[in-house]
Amino acid sequence: MTDKSTSTVRSVDSNLFITVSGPPGCGATTLCDGLSEALNCGYVSGGDIFRDLADERGMSLSQLIAKTDETDEIDRALDRRLRTIAEKWGAANNPFILEARLAGWLAGNRADLRIWLDAPDEIRVERTRDRDEMEAEMRVREVSEAGRYKSYYNIDVTDQSFYDLSINTARWGKDASLEMVLTAIDEYEPTDDEGAFKTDDVAV
Rank of each mutant, 00 (worst) to 15 (best):
T2P: 15
D3G: 01
T6A: 03
S7G: 03
V9H: 00
R10V: 05
S14V: 10
L16G: 08
L16A: 13
G22D: 07
G22K: 08
P24L: 01
G25R: 08
G27T: 01
A28P: 00
T29W: 07
T29S: 15
T30N: 04
S36F: 10
S36P: 05
C41Y: 04
C41L: 02
D48Q: 13
I49C: 06
R51K: 12
R57L: 14
L61M: 03
D75G: 11
R76C: 05
D79L: 00
R81G: 13
T84G: 04
T84D: 15
I85M: 14
A86D: 08
W89S: 07
L98F: 01
L106M: 11
L106K: 07
A107L: 03
R110L: 11
R114L: 02
T128M: 15
D130Q: 12
E135K: 07
R139M: 11
R141H: 11
E142W: 03
V143D: 10
S144A: 13
A146H: 11
Y149K: 00
S151T: 11
D156C: 08
T158L: 06
T158Q: 13
Q160V: 09
D164M: 02
L165I: 05
W172Y: 14
K174I: 07
V181T: 05
L182M: 09
A184R: 15
I185T: 06
D186E: 14
E189K: 15
E189I: 08
P190D: 12
D192K: 15
E194K: 05
G195K: 05
A196M: 10
V204G: 00
